[in-house]
Amino acid sequence: MRALRTHETGGPETLKLDEIDAPTPSKGQVLVDVKACAINYPDTLMIRDLYQFRPERPYSPGGEISGVVEAVGEGVDGFEVGDRVMAGIGNGGLCEKVCVDAGRMFKVPDGVSFEKAASLLMTYGTTIHGLKDRGHIKEGDTVLVLGAAGGVGLSAVELSKAFGARVVAAVSSEEKGEVARQAGADEVVIYPKEDMDKAASKELANAFKAACAPDGANIVYDIVGGQYSEPALRSIAWEGRFLVVGFPAGIAKMPLNLTLLKSCDIAGVFWGAFTAREPVKFHAQVNELFDLLQAGKIDPLVSETFPLERGGDAIAKLENRQAVGKIVVTMD
């Protein structure tokens, strides 16, 4: 089978398309004929050895897949050959076949494409956990979403609206702003792509405050980090929740005096660890996502697909912050 793998530390240009033997499922595992693999920000970090986990090389990046069950290992109940499935696997998805622990798999709902199925778990899973467990979202809240036109950002817009919140989408261009509006955002703020000095940072903070008026953002959903985090924190409401989700723009150094002045919380959202520590709640939230999907309240936006041999280009596009919605690699 074909597998796009990393053999050395480096960027997406170092990935190589290899021909390797197909794996055999062990006890409790299922062999999946992969149809689609969504690209996510951890993929850009992992191949550069910048992520929390460093798998032993060579391995395939890609932590979110969908496909068809090809073989079932000993002791597996609930899955049969031919089932359409989806799974979050951490890494190993950019290949034609992969063995998956049955406990991390879900059947793809009827009528959902493989591309959309591969785009649901990590983005919407991260966000439903972040908004509900870490942000304690409630109807009537105002949610400020940074990076609102990417895969995770759009999931935050859609889920916040589904939970009855008002959404302010922060993006880097008018084009991305329109994508956020189509997903349900009530207000859009365009932030600069170039480095901001103190005056520009204050101006952005004022723009966030104006959009989040009258009381500020009850929840800040920060997928971007860097120079954008502090202006967002300055727009937070009394006893607001600032959720740290990712930092493609860099790790922010936050003035902690603001947390005292606003009596607010800064909370991390580490979905991968959550799924391992609380599998029962994780499965319940995925089932809730399926209900929202079938009700038409969420709908993953797949903006572009790439063939397996161009998987490195897909990762590069996400790494360069050019992606709108989800980018997916397909095996056919």
Results as ranks from 00 to 15, higher is better:
122 M>R: 10
153 G>E: 04
132 K>D: 00
203 E>D: 14
214 P>A: 14
169 A>V: 14
186 D>I: 12
232 A>G: 12
170 A>L: 10
175 E>M: 13
148 A>Q: 02
224 V>L: 04
178 E>R: 15
182 Q>A: 11
150 G>F: 06
169 A>H: 14
242 F>C: 09
131 L>S: 00
127 T>F: 00
114 F>A: 13
131 L>C: 00
131 L>P: 06
176 K>Y: 00
168 V>R: 07
148 A>R: 03
250 G>T: 06
143 V>M: 02
145 V>R: 02
116 K>R: 06
216 G>K: 10
157 V>D: 13
123 T>D: 13
174 E>Q: 15
231 P>R: 06
211 A>H: 08
236 I>S: 01
193 K>Q: 07
182 Q>V: 03
130 G>D: 13
153 G>L: 11
111 G>F: 05
158 E>F: 07
111 G>L: 07
190 I>G: 08
250 G>C: 05
164 G>I: 02
181 R>K: 15
246 G>D: 11
242 F>A: 12
151 G>A: 07
123 T>M: 12
179 V>I: 15
166 R>G: 10
173 S>G: 00
106 F>V: 05
200 A>K: 15
197 D>H: 13
194 E>G: 06
158 E>C: 05
169 A>L: 14
174 E>N: 09
234 R>V: 01
178 E>L: 14
140 G>Q: 09
220 V>P: 14
225 G>Y: 09
131 L>W: 02
127 T>P: 05
173 S>L: 01
134 R>P: 12
161 K>D: 03
116 K>L: 12
145 V>Y: 02
238 W>A: 08
243 L>E: 05
160 S>E: 10
138 K>T: 10
225 G>Q: 01
133 D>F: 04
204 L>W: 15
225 G>V: 00
166 R>M: 13
117 A>I: 09
204 L>E: 14
154 L>F: 05
218 N>S: 12
143 V>C: 03
148 A>N: 07
197 D>Q: 12
118 A>D: 10
128 I>Q: 01
245 V>D: 05
164 G>F: 00
241 R>W: 00
136 H>A: 11
109 P>M: 06
142 T>M: 10
152 V>L: 02
228 Y>Q: 10
162 A>S: 06
157 V>C: 09
124 Y>K: 08
179 V>A: 13
162 A>F: 00
128 I>E: 00
204 L>R: 11
145 V>A: 04
139 E>K: 15
111 G>T: 04
165 A>M: 13
202 K>F: 14
168 V>Q: 04
137 I>F: 07
168 V>H: 06
167 V>C: 09
222 D>F: 11
190 I>P: 04
222 D>Q: 06
157 V>F: 09
204 L>H: 15
178 E>D: 15
221 Y>R: 08
145 V>D: 02
194 E>W: 05
212 C>E: 08
236 I>T: 02
233 L>H: 06
247 F>C: 11
